[in-house]
């Protein structure tokens, strides 16, 4: 038990420790954020086409169902969700596999798995273009498999510039699964193996151990990875720019084409504000979950 005085002192100490971060966020994030919000209602002149006068036209156009922006938002959300699930799931599966099989992450593997983290985004996007297009290795393989051997279809589906976003999903999953793996594997290493042994002696099977022992323990990490992957893919630009379709457009590409090429910065900033609102909503959910994770862990 701590006395109120110690508790107050502690709280003050905590504030002091958070202060550098708060100061940094306050200057480097809050300022551009305020500028972005003001720009989305036309009230700055930071970019060409912004007049400095208040207008809600950007939001009216963004939420106009006849315009492509809402469809772009929905498409972006769907594709991002699928990619997050695949990349996080893959990372988790691999980390658990290595844990159960007691495979030591040797130097080579530990080195290999980090490669996607250091591939320049644009190069990655372009490499997947040449892998997935009909004359690329994956393109040829898909054709041979679906058309020639299984004879399921007459023509293999387009893997790039396709309306389902297959190219984006494949490339995004490749880029993000190491993040999931690295964090979850690291957290699993911190768990005492005696937990698993105890569960096993009590007769628990692998599935139950995963659900009852590991998932609660790495819950926070998993959530955090999923959030990071979701947000990183949500605003990704290079991948959808190279691999995306003409319809539906990825929101970041929509912003780029509208703002940079056509000079419609009102639309650009409106979409940015929509992005940020979604991020804040997710962050709130995340902070709540964190509090819960802290009490459960």
């Amino acid at each position: 038990m701590t006395s109120p005085r110690t508790s107050r002192r502690r709280q003050f100490g905590d504030l002091l420790m958070v202060a550098p971060l708060a100061l940094f966020l306050g200057t480097m994030v809050l300022v551009p954020l305020v500028i972005a919000v003001l720009s989305s209602v036309g009230m700055t002149t930071v970019a060409p086409g912004l007049t400095g006068e208040f207008t809600l036209q950007g939001f009216r156009e963004f939420f106009d169902p006849t315009k492509p922006s809402l469809a772009a938002l929905w498409f972006t959300f769907k594709v991002t969700l699928v990619t997050t699930a695949i990349s996080t799931g893959l990372g988790l599966a691999l980390a658990l596999f290595m844990r159960f099989r007691r495979i030591a992450l040797g130097q080579v593997m530990s080195f290999l798995v980090k490669i996607p983290l250091f591939m320049p985004y644009l190069v990655t996007a372009f490499v997947f273009w040449v892998l997935l297009y009909p004359k690329g290795y994956i393109g040829i393989l898909t054709h041979k498999l679906l058309v020639e051997y299984l004879a399921l279809v007459e023509q293999a589906p387009a893997l790039i510039s396709d309306p389902l976003g297959i190219g984006i999903i494949v490339c995004g999953s490749w880029m993000r699964f190491p993040y999931a793996f690295v964090i979850i594997h690291g957290l699993l290493q911190m768990i005492d193996p005696s937990y698993e042994e105890a569960a096993r002696t009590l007769g628990a099977r692998t599935g139950r151990i995963v659900r009852r022992v590991y998932l609660p323990l790495v819950g926070y990490g998993l959530l955090s990875v999923a959030l990071l992957n979701f947000l990183a893919l949500f605003i990704a630009f290079s991948i959808p720019f190279v691999l995306g379709a003409s319809w539906p457009q990825f929101l970041s590409v929509f912003i780029y084409v509208n703002a940079k090429d056509q000079g419609n910065w009102l639309a650009g900033y409106t979409a940015s504000v929509v992005y940020i609102v979604i991020a804040l909503a997710i962050a709130t959910f995340y902070t709540r979950a964190l509090q819960r994770a802290k009490t459960h862990a």
């Binding site: 990071l228 912003i255 804040l280």
Partner: peptide, 9 residues
């Protein structure tokens, strides 16, 4: 978390 969803441009 805000910067995570703040388009860099």
């Amino acid at each position: 978390s805000v910067p995570l969803a703040f388009p860099t441009i």
